[in-house]
């Protein structure tokens, strides 16, 4: 645990404070205050991301620090879109997830920046990482809905039920997951000479794609008849995604090609 005595660090701590207090306000039913703090958290996260971009002179998607920096910023618009367009709620969970994601930024990850190695100097870099970040946030929302379904909660009447909400989130996230995988494969062909290299990160990401593909087939077969299995698959998906995201970075046991992100 280290504390960052920098402008970047200060912005991160303020982001955590904003999202966390928004969460606390939500669970104590202070809706107006919560709305304001949620927006504040989003603005701080955005400023933090733009500051980093300006600081390192390239889109900050290079390492785990930078990828985690983008996530608390993108949660807010996704959360609002899902609530108003898809009637999938649970903003409190989104606020908490944003604060949890910002936590390692402030206390664990190193903020050191590197020059972009030759393999990352291509237009595919930004869309490949961005689609995955969006997909992962949406799938995290799916797993929150799935947990709600499993614990037997009932959704508020202006929202769809939790089983349906899980399905909607996976329908929103699955195309993004597919696009991220394909962009990565196309890029691997250009940079490494092969569109599929069987390295651990590729295999974990394939496994997470397959879990959701399995979910979609299973739900097509049985609909809501086995709702608990549907929800369990959605939760298994986010577990595999978490491993995919952290695998190469945190376990230095196996060397893969994906050693920059």
């Amino acid at each position: 645990m280290t504390i960052k005595y920098t402008i970047q660090g200060l912005l991160i701590y303020l982001t955590i404070a904003g999202y966390l207090s928004a969460f606390l306000a939500t669970i104590s039913y202070k809706k107006k205050t919560a709305d304001f703090l949620y927006l504040l958290g989003f603005i701080l996260a955005t400023v933090s991301f733009i500051y980093r971009w300006y600081d390192v002179h390239h889109i900050p998607f290079q390492n785990l620090f930078e990828v985690f920096l983008a996530m608390p910023m993108l949660i807010y618009p996704i959360s609002k879109f899902c609530k108003h367009q898809l009637r999938v709620g649970n903003e409190a969970a989104d606020m908490l997830i944003a604060a949890i994601l910002a936590f390692p930024l402030g206390f664990i990850f190193s903020a050191e920046s590197n020059n972009l190695p030759p393999a990352l100097q291509i237009w595919l870099f930004a869309p490949h990482v961005a689609t995955y970040i969006l997909a992962y946030i949406v799938m995290a929302k799916a797993s929150v809905q799935a947990i709600n379904q499993l614990t037997g909660k009932t959704a508020s009447p202006n929202l769809v039920d939790y089983e349906q909400a899980t399905y909607r989130m996976i329908c929103l996230g699955f195309p993004l997951l597919t696009l991220g995988l394909i962009l990565g494969s196309y890029w691997a062909k250009l940079a490494w000479g092969d569109y599929w290299g069987w390295d651990p990160k590729e295999l974990w990401s394939l496994a997470s794609w397959l879990i959701y593909a399995g979910y979609l087939h299973f739900r097509y077969m049985f609909g809501k008849r086995h709702a608990r299995i549907n929800s369990s698959l959605a939760i298994l998906g986010i577990v595999i995604i978490l491993i995919t995201l952290l695998w190469v970075n945190l376990s230095n046991i196996f060397a893969g090609l994906h050693n920059y992100a």
């Binding site: 290299g197 974990w204 394939l206 496994a207 397959l210 593909a213 399995g214 087939h217 196996f254 893969g256």
Partner: peptide, 20 residues
């Protein structure tokens, strides 16, 4: 799908050339 997912996860513990 289940089989391929299990195989992918198992192979993710190996170095890339062995998985290949």
């Amino acid at each position: 799908i289940g089989l391929l997912a299990i195989l992918s996860i198992s192979a993710a513990f190996w170095p890339a050339d062995r998985a290949k």
